[in-house]
């Protein structure tokens, strides 16, 4: 492990965990991805790491580009020199065995780590089209959180009414008009497929909802502010199969409107909801590609082993 504060001069020297990792693959998930979310032409499934050139592909379809990015908890490097592009208005799934750094990477996008002491970002996450570096400490984390929403592993509604939960972000952004609040709350609840179930009890406490409804409420809350990216961290891991399938459907529908990054432990889920999949292992990005291709024909043995359930 490299000492804290210094990025290893030769990234590969630090990898000694198996041949499969000898060359981490890093490509754009949607080098030629269409703006509508579906790639218009077949993508190369995966590319070897040394083809960094692909990262310079037209930025049009890339919403966020992670570049030579590392993240540290104190001395511990949880994300190791990752480069990957996230396709605009598409769903990208982050998969990998427990502890490989999926959550850690996801929480870099909305600077969640800033809440805790002794954390460090290194490298860049460029948000297009503005081109700002999300993890630049000079940029306020609040600004990034205003633009990038997050849905957590466990539903975490606020101790407020259903309406106020969804209006929370709007109020923070200075929306005052009752009419506008009501309209946007309704739109968000409809967008989260929850309106029908709660329209007659908007003033009731959110805690009275079921777990699945609470999670959809959290999705509505995240959508209400019209974010550029929505981050999902295993959003269904605390839910039953029916609630899960509702949320999967929802994510699938949302993809035409917003860029989505979803961490999941569930391979079937990744296959069902995502356009692109990124496989992480021990903090490194092993392989990135179109979900269908990656599941049928992974480029790396490690990916193949993980997908087929031989470890993790």
């Amino acid at each position: 492990m490299s000492p804290p504060g210094s990025r290893p001069a030769h990234p590969r020297d630090t990898i000694a965990r198996g041949p499969a990792l000898a060359a981490p693959v890093s490509v754009d998930a949607a080098a030629t991805g269409g703006a509508a979310g579906r790639p218009r032409e077949p993508l190369p499934t995966t590319t070897p790491a040394n083809q960094e050139a692909t990262a310079a592909a037209p930025a049009a379809g890339i919403k966020a580009r992670v570049q030579d990015f590392s993240f540290y908890y104190g001395p511990f490097q949880a994300v190791k020199n990752v480069s990957i592009g996230f396709a605009e208005r598409a769903v990208t799934a982050l998969i990998g065995p427990s502890g490989c750094g999926k959550t850690t990477l996801l929480r870099c996008f909305n600077r969640m780590h800033d809440l805790y002491p002794d954390t460090r970002y290194e490298g860049k996450i460029v948000l297009n089209p503005s081109g700002i570096n999300i993890v630049d400490r000079r940029i306020s984390p609040i600004e990034m959180r205003m633009r990038i929403s997050m849905v957590f592993q466990k539903p975490n509604p606020f101790p407020k009414s259903i309406f106020e939960n969804v209006a929370y972000g709007l109020r923070l952004r200075g929306v005052r008009s009752r009419r506008e609040l009501a309209d946007r709350v309704e739109t968000a609840l409809k967008g989260a497929a929850l309106w029908g179930e709660v329209s007659d009890r908007l003033r009731k406490p959110a805690f009275a909802l079921s777990g699945g409804q609470q999670q959809r409420l959290c999705i509505a809350r995240a959508l209400a502010v019209e974010p550029e990216i929505v981050l999902f961290d295993e959003p269904t891991s605390a839910l039953d199969p029916i609630a899960t399938s509702k949320i999967e459907e929802l994510i699938h529908e949302l993809r035409s409107r917003v860029t989505i990054i979803i961490v999941t432990h569930n391979m079937q889920q990744a296959a069902r909801v995502s356009d692109f999949t990124a496989f992480m292992y021990l903090g490194e990005m092993v392989e990135v590609g179109r979900t269908d291709m990656m599941f049928q024909n992974p480029a790396r043995p490690l990916t193949e082993q993980y997908i087929s359930g031989r470890f993790g």
């Binding site: 909305n110 969640m112 809440l115 609040i142 959180r145 205003m146 929403s149 997050m150 957590f152 466990k154 975490n156 509604p157 606020f158 101790p159 407020k160 929370y168 972000g169 923070l172 952004r173 959290c218 809350r221 995240a222 502010v225």
Partner: peptide, 26 residues
């Protein structure tokens, strides 16, 4: 729980708003 605070921060709230609008009522 920290999870509740994180929910508020993730929406773009600062510390004071999180304390008053989420932690206090909770």
């Amino acid at each position: 729980p920290m999870l509740l605070r994180e929910g508020s921060y993730a929406m773009g709230a600062g510390r004071l708003k999180t304390a008053i609008r989420v932690v206090f009522p909770a």
